[in-house]
Design a protein around this nucleic acid. Structure first.
Length: 308
DNA sequence: ATCATGACCTGTTAGC
DNA sequence: TGCTAACAGGTCATGA
């Protein structure tokens, strides 16, 4: 599921419920996800206040205030392929979170974590993490060391940030023989893109997923420079996807349970064998048929006619 | 350094 | 209907 737009959708959905809220209790239903949970995870969080919820690449960062006599921590969470959070109001019947959730039939087999929160308005809610494939994870690190944390320090530029643009992109890709598809998936260059949005951005930019990444900085032709088209396409696709609440193929839900709907706007992803939807300025439709190929072990969807 | 591959784990779907 | 194989949004470790 979760590429940048889905993670950002989740962040926006959670933020009003968690920012400023106090963690009343944490129910952890298994010892590990992709990685083991941190030692004494639930105990360490209980009683502390969540100051802010931010996002870096596809990571959600929960900034947790210091406990008595301690230091602030950052909870680093990743949704993997199938993770989701949902927010459920407390029943107010005083039953423990786990029992509450089960009693109400809310906890499914893959509800691995249940955080009971008390908002600044005093209201209680549960934030429940569900993840069937368990490729997601949660780690804790001192807030002061967050930027140098192994998982965070190597992350590339945020495509929706101010520093991202055609020049940066061309510089990052300069000299790279790897195909554009692989370069855009490389989180240490530009972060947040996954298989879907790389395919969509390349289509929108009219660039071949197989073209060497280094070429976008030098290739000349008619019309806007490829790096300009690609940078614009990346931002536009991501922004539109966020507006749509992300893409729901299977698992992605907004935190209120709503589906994302950007999948209805896909031009290439999952459209193998269907006609290309590009319309030329003349009004003529592209005659191409969307092809699926495998690049570095994953499906690439593209139009062989208009993506060069 | 760069690149491709396999592994992680479960659920869904296509095909027989 | 029932079984099996292929495939799925991500990342990390490994080896060429």
């Amino acid at each position: 599921m979760p590429e940048l737009p889905e993670v950002e959708t989740v962040r926006r959905g959670l933020a009003p419920h968690v920012e400023g809220a106090r963690i009343v209790s944490v129910t952890q239903r298994r010892a590990d996800l992709r990685f083991p949970f941190p030692e004494r995870f639930a105990e360490r969080l209980a009683g502390r206040r969540i100051a802010a919820l931010s996002r870096r690449a596809k990571y959600l960062l929960w900034h947790v205030d210091a406990p008595q006599g301690g230091e602030p921590d950052a909870l680093i969470s990743h949704l993997g392929m199938s993770g989701s959070f949902r927010v459920v109001p407390d029943s107010g019947d005083g039953i423990t979170p786990g029992a509450f959730a089960h009693a109400r039939g809310i906890a499914g087999p893959h509800d691995h974590l249940d955080m009971e929160l008390q908002g600044e308005d005093g209201r209680r809610t549960h934030v429940i993490y569900n993840d069937p494939r368990r490729f997601g994870f949660m780690l804790m690190t001192p807030e002061a060391g967050l930027a140098t944390h192994k998982l965070i320090s190597g992350i590339g530029i945020e495509p929706l940030g101010n520093a991202f643009g055609p020049d940066t992109l061309a510089r990052l890709f300069d000299g790279k023989a790897a195909p554009l598809k692989a370069a855009l998936l490389d989180q240490s260059l530009v972060c947040g893109l996954g298989n879907i949005y790389v395919c969509e951005a390349l289509w929108q930019a009219g660039l071949s997923p197989f073209a060497p990444a280094g070429r976008i900085g030098t290739q000349q032709g008619r019309g806007p420079h490829p790096a300009v088209r690609l940078a614009e396409a990346v931002r536009d696709v991501l922004n539109r996807a966020i507006e749509a609440g992300g893409s729901t193929l299977r698992d992605h839900r907004q935190t209120d349970g709503q589906l994302g709907y950007f999948q209805h706007s896909f031009h290439v992803y999952g459209r193998e064998g269907e006609p290309c939807r590009r319309r030329a300025r003349s009004g003529r439709m592209c005659r191409g048929v969307i092809a699926r190929t495998v690049q570095s072990g994953r499906s690439t969807f593209h139009c062989p006619i208009c993506q060069r």
